[in-house]
Design a binder for these strands. Structure first.
Lengths: 265, 265
DNA sequence: TCAAAACAAGAGCAGTGCTCTCTAAATCCA
DNA sequence: TGGATTTAGAGAGCACTGCTCTTGTTTTGA
């Protein structure tokens, strides 16, 4: 699942381009005992990403400056262009890095919950996303906030890490459904128009799901709602002091949302 | 009510700047027969805002450039500093402008629905926000997306226009409750911890509401969920072609959310 | 009429992304 | 081992940004 990360952490740094490799590819293409120059190059790229993350956290994506990173790296600005094609490329590196960090946190949190406790897994997922978002607001904004103007993430590199959370979430819902733990007859029943049903059918086929349309549709709503609540908190849409009990508020929202999708427990 | 705005406006609100005033305020505070210089100044500020909106729509907030606006205005860059203190000030102007445009759209949409059709009013509000967001994605991103790094909106000028939608939304919910059209016993019942109840009580007092805690809490969730769904769509979190039936998807989400808060109809 | 206020222009500073050229160092290979 | 080749880094430079300061010019109002 974390191929993209692997690829950039070791082998692919070499060419300065990140490729999305399967683990087979990555293990094959990674002799590990590389030349000193290659290791130095990999280390430099790792440093650039680390410094980029620091700048991102401190000043946000819009203020991410290659020149500043170069200064921190102790090198002249043009030198970093040997390692990173341009600013957008650095953004892409940070994007993939953040997606995978979030995905790892979510996976760890969900896996700490008993296999049959689907509602608990759902809440663990929500809480993990929120905790990470509050801890790394700039990274969260990069992933889920306004698109950076003029920047288009390269789908072939970001899609897999970028869909880890939603794939995990529908996985929980679908596993609950297969286990009979998902109430498919949630009230009020809302009719699903044919056009929407077609979209849901495509999703079901692609992700190999079993849950029926109403559950899938509610799952999508719950997905957007979880991130909506987190975004409001992280982006400061609640005023400064409207909600002092933010933990309790979010916990409440998760409880209600788990009912919306029909998860009991 | 809108003093803060008025103060910055003086002559300037004349210029097509949208402010939240009662008609009494507006007729009282605006002599209208100003000197030619004052009218020219107001017109220039109006032009700056208009050009700023165009740049915002075309290139996004991060790329909003005072120099580019100056060029379009046919004037040297330093000249615009006579009218706008700095880039952040222009952002604030555009922020207030956008908040009020959205508020006006929402108000118009809600008021077109029969007074007793609370569920219809809720859906009209949601659809109005979404329609405006899709039409003005850059403005929507400015209001509800990632915060602009280093920019802090001046609360005394933005709070009133910035809360028009949520005030309207809870107004609908509360009116429904008072009319007996809000089911306060929504299932599943979720316990509200004391800390959250205290926050809700403060909100109830400030906005003079009658609805009980469970309804208020669910109202908050519905609020964040509506914007979460819209943000996902506008910010491209749904992939390019996961959902072809976006109108139907959002309509479905509104229907489910109206059930979440207990609005029947 | 004349001083004061407002205005526009221009130069300038410090910062940005990015390209280009040049030198020095590391690596490869015959 | 020595020469050819590749790579790293430095530096200059271009076009752009926000913003300040000075210098004339125009408009205003008493």
């Amino acid at each position: 699942m974390s191929r993209a990360v692997l690829s950039f952490v070791d082998g692919a740094l070499y060419c300065g381009k990140l490729v999305c490799m399967t683990s087979a590819e990555s293990s094959a293409a990674k002799p590990k005992a590389t030349t000193p120059r290659e290791r130095a190059r990999a280390q430099t790229i790792a440093d650039i990403i680390r410094l980029g993350r620091e700048h991102l956290a401190l000043h946000g994506a819009a203020a991410l400056s290659l020149r500043a990173v170069a200064r921190d790296l102790g090198v002249v600005s043009s030198a970093v262009y040997r390692y990173v094609e341009n600013r957008d490329e650095l953004l892409t590196l940070l994007l993939i890095d953040a997606y995978n960090e979030l995905g790892d946190h979510v996976d760890a949190a969900v896996e700490a919950v008993p296999e049959k406790d689907f509602a608990g897994q759902f809440r663990a997922l929500g809480n993990a996303v929120r905790a990470w978002a509050v801890r790394e607001p700039a990274s969260y904004a990069l992933l889920f906030g306004s698109p950076v103007p003029g920047y288009q993430a390269p789908g072939e590199r970001t899609t897999v890490p970028g869909t880890r959370v939603i794939v995990r979430l529908v996985g929980i819902f679908d596993a609950a459904y297969r286990a009979g733990a998902l109430n498919a007859e949630v009230t009020p029943a809302v009719v699903i128009p044919p056009a929407l049903a077609a979209d849901l059918e495509a999703i079901r086929a692609e992700l190999n799901l079993a849950a029926p349309d109403p559950s899938l549709a509610r799952g999508v709503l719950v997905w957007t709602s979880v991130f909506g609540a987190i975004s409001f908190e992280v982006f400061g849409q609640y005023g400064a002091d409207t909600f002092a009990a933010r933990d309790e508020l979010f916990a409440h929202q998760l409880r209600v949302l788990q009912g919306v999708v029909g998860l009991q427990g």
